[in-house]
Design a binder for these strands. Structure first.
Length: 420
RNA sequence: GUGGGUGUAGCUCAACUGGUUAGAGUACCGGACUGUGGAUCCGGUUGUUGGGAGUCCGAAUCUCCUCACCCACCCCA
């Protein structure tokens, strides 16, 4: 078929499914607000430099996955590939460090990466994330993780746990990196081709490789064993806070993240229901990012989750939420001469907060009622010649078939009494 | 970027080994039934068989190219 279609890796979200999106987005946003986070909306386009200095020049995201283009003045722009760097850019740009600390944000929206689409991975995908900027305490790490579990619980998802690790900071990671590199060099001949390349550029990522021999990986030095005092204390306090809060976590010494800005705490929530793209949520601490972007030294922690992946899990695990009730739907059926009266009736009802659909085709009542029931209406309001001349309406309950005639002035109240 | 799988009405699928005008269910529209719906019956619309080239008397079917989707690698949310 020769028709214009969605761009590869993008999709339309249509009627039944979009209801689930609205509901899930509502739960996420309201929970974040209840935890004291405020919504932050940043632009979809940013200058390319924002991500090369923050996410990292050698990461895949920056090297080959960004949608980048020059604008008409030759500026190097990109469609945002992730949400943390823009949040920090906004924090620095608006000097939010003068506001009470920490600044706590949540965001939701579209992000873009030029990748081969597969299950749980689109070129335009949707993220929800939170960022707490300006607090170094381990309890801030604990709070953002606690928020995750409150959200998951409100969505009816149980049985998930978070993988946690610490990858150190500027005072201990360089030494660990060297140690790991040295250890990897003694096994270089056994590494896969990708890991040979990673060995020089980003040795931590070898730990994440699924192709390597598990025994070999287990024998490598672990970052948690080489933390400086400050990082070790932070990590230990975080774990004990998670214990006290009964948050299910696993220590995973192989957990590293693909973005360069992380320090100390890193974490992920994985799900078996997601196929190969099993990461539902990922995040961590990024204590140097604000400074890198030109702000004052400011510790921060946050996470982002993939909406497509969350929706898939909710649909599989929480069918009652997935099969959300259709809205109470009222359908106005009218005769030719009552068109104006029908439109005015709807206007009054909508102003009083009742959702009303109207059939603009004033053909036979049988036709209109048939359309009303096919569209899932609970009630039909019939306003024909008789009703419009008397100032009444007939309300028919389409599930029981019963109907009664009442004064049109009392209609809003009547429906309100029945809507729940 | 690399591999594997799949492309036929809006949806679910047929169509023998290559053989007339590509069918059925469902959906949609209309009628029986112009002041009362979901049922039933009758009728109707729906396709460049993803697109292009080739082989052949003849292609949805075989070959090649291309595009899209699905899955996986890679990477990540």
């Amino acid at each position: 078929m020769n028709m214009i279609k969605t761009v590869k890796g993008t999709t339309d979200i249509l009627a039944p499914e979009v209801l689930l999106w609205q509901r899930v987005e509502g739960v996420l946003a309201s929970t974040a607000k209840a935890y004291g986070y405020e919504e932050l909306r940043t632009p979809t386009i940013e200058v390319q430099e924002l991500f090369s200095v923050s996410v990292g020049q050698t990461t895949d995201i920056v090297e080959r996955e960004m949608y980048s283009f020059p604008d008409k003045k030759g500026r190097h722009l990109v469609l945002r590939p992730e949400g943390t760097a823009p949040a920090c850019r906004a924090y620095v740009e608006h000097q939010l460090n003068v506001q009470p600390s920490p600044s706590k944000f949540f965001y939701m929206g579209s992000f873009f990466r030029y990748e081969q689409p597969q299950s749980g991975r689109k070129r335009e995908f949707h993220s929800f994330g939170v960022e707490a900027i300006g607090e170094q305490s381990h309890l801030q790490d604990a709070e953002v993780i606690d928020l995750v579990f409150t959200m998951l619980s409100r969505l009816g998802l149980t049985g998930l746990s978070v993988d946690v690790n610490s990858i150190g900071d500027a005072s201990c990671r360089p030494q660990y990196k060297e140690l790991l590199q040295a250890s990897l060099k003694t096994h270089e001949d056994k590494l896969c081709d990708d890991c040979k390349r990673r060995l020089m550029e980003n040795p931590l990522r070898v730990l994440d490789c699924k192709r390597e021999d598990p025994q070999l990986l287990a024998s490598l030095p672990k970052s948690v064993d080489f933390l400086c005092d400050e990082c070790r204390t932070h990590h230990a306090l975080l774990l004990s806070a998670l214990d006290s809060l009964h948050i299910p976590y696993r220590q995973n010494s192989r957990l590293v993240r693909g973005l360069d800005y992380y320090t100390k705490t890193v974490f992920e929530v994985l799900s078996e229901d997601l196929g190969a793209q099993s990461a539902l949520l990922g995040g961590g601490r990024y204590d140097y990012l604000v400074r890198q972007l030109g702000g004052p030294q400011t510790p921060a922690v946050g996470w982002g989750l993939g909406m497509e992946r969350l929706i898939a899990i909710v649909a599989a695990h929480s069918p009652d939420l997935a099969a959300s009730l259709p809205p109470l739907r009222i359908y106005v059926v009218h005769s030719d001469t009552a068109t104006t009266a029908a439109f005015e009736l709807r206007r009054r009802l909508v102003e009083s907060g009742v959702a009303v659909d109207i059939d603009v085709r004033s053909d036979s009542f049988g036709k209109q009622l048939a359309r009303a029931s096919r569209r899932g209406a609970r009630y039909a309001i019939i306003i024909g010649d008789d009703e419009s001349s008397r100032g009444t309406v007939t309300v028919k309950d389409l599930s029981t078939g019963t109907q009664e005639t009442l004064e049109s002035d009392g209609l809003a109240e009547y429906l309100d009494g029945r809507s729940r």
